[in-house]
């Protein structure tokens, strides 16, 4: 049963996607709790112009340059979103929509500019945006692992601060913490987690990896530490299963299958999670109704 694990290429892909699932699940928790999960969508879309500009400047498809370009563009996108919200009457969701669509449109323009004017073929850049897990090389996985390790370490080191600005920003300010600095660091973590994943699963599906595992974990627990661990576990399991199904059973693109696995985990959580699950809520509701009926009947007897 496990002979498929012998394939070295598959091993790398499996390792890469699993690490990615764990990291994005953990870091996504803060985005979801701050109700800014759609910012991750904007960041993922903003990676396209970043990657293209990096390619135009360096003229090289080396992953590390593309990643740096994507991080810078993603960070500028988050900054623009916040700036528009602070300096106009536009709400956050509109601001996200404006930034997302314009950045991506600009990216498409750059992509066509590269393919028309620079002789180099831009097919690799296309893949970078739409995701191509099967093409993960050992070097890519090494970069993903190192970046993930750095991101998770920073997350653990600043856990207290992040927790504070997520749940009670005013208290954090009162304690003398610089809200902006910590928030920027958190945004940088989110941008980093998204950028290392885009190449594997693509722009839209990366958003799913940031949002779905934390949302599922949130249904199971009230504690942030437990939520982080659960979200990481969900993300990791979904990536493992998704990669397994896609490369062996179904032979289709890996990204969508991983996301469908995550969606399945979320759906099961929605049904069966304790206290917040639909099954539990219905059960409590039935129990209440029954006890209410009993009370009513006893009351009637008393009246008679």
């Amino acid at each position: 049963m496990f002979e498929w694990l012998q394939d070295p290429n598959l091993q790398w892909v499996l390792l890469g996607t699993t690490i990615l699932g764990i990291t994005s699940g953990m870091i996504g928790c803060f985005a979801v709790l701050k109700r800014q999960s759609l910012i991750s969508d904007a960041v993922a879309h903003a990676a396209l112009p970043g990657v293209c500009l990096a390619f135009i400047v360096v003229r090289d498809k080396e992953l590390i340059y593309l990643l740096i370009g994507a991080v810078i563009a993603g960070y500028i996108a988050t900054y623009c979103i916040q700036y528009i919200v602070q300096h106009s009457k536009l709400k956050e969701d509109t601001s996200i929509g404006v930034v997302l669509s314009v950045f991506f449109g600009f990216g498409v323009v750059l992509l066509t500019y590269i393919s028309n004017n620079l002789a180099g073929n831009q097919s690799g850049l296309d893949e970078f945006v739409f995701g191509q897990a099967a093409s993960l090389s050992s070097q890519d996985v090494q970069i993903i692992s190192i970046v993930s390790l750095v991101l998770v370490t920073v997350l653990v080191l600043f856990y207290k601060e992040f927790k504070l600005i997520t749940f009670d920003p005013n208290f954090a300010k009162a304690l003398g913490l610089s809200y902006n600095k910590i928030n920027n660091l958190l945004m940088l973590l989110i941008v980093g987690a998204i950028v290392i994943g885009i190449q594997t699963v693509g722009v839209v599906l990366m958003t799913a990896m940031i949002i779905i595992p934390p949302a599922a974990a949130r249904l199971w627990t009230e504690k942030l530490s437990v939520m982080l661990l659960l979200a990481g576990t969900f993300g990791g399991i979904a990536s493992l299963l998704g990669t397994y199904f896609s490369t062996l059973a179904l032979r289709v693109a890996t990204g969508p299958v991983i996301v469908l696995c995550e969606a399945a985990i979320f759906f099961l959580s929605l049904l069966f999670a304790p206290k917040r699950g639909i099954v539990y809520k219905n059960w409590v509701f039935r129990k209440l109704r029954r006890s209410h009926k009993n009370q009513q009947t006893t009351r009637k007897h008393k009246v008679i």
């Binding site: 999960s37 799913a208 949302a215 289709v252 996301v259 469908l260 969606a263």
Partner: peptide
């Protein structure tokens, strides 16, 4: 589940299903 997260969950899942069907 907050609006932003529920939008994120629903559209990415349905999109993933769409891409999945296309690739099959």
């Amino acid at each position: 589940i907050h609006t932003d997260a529920s939008i994120g969950i629903v559209f990415t899942s349905l999109f993933a299903l769409g891409v999945f069907l296309v690739s099959i």
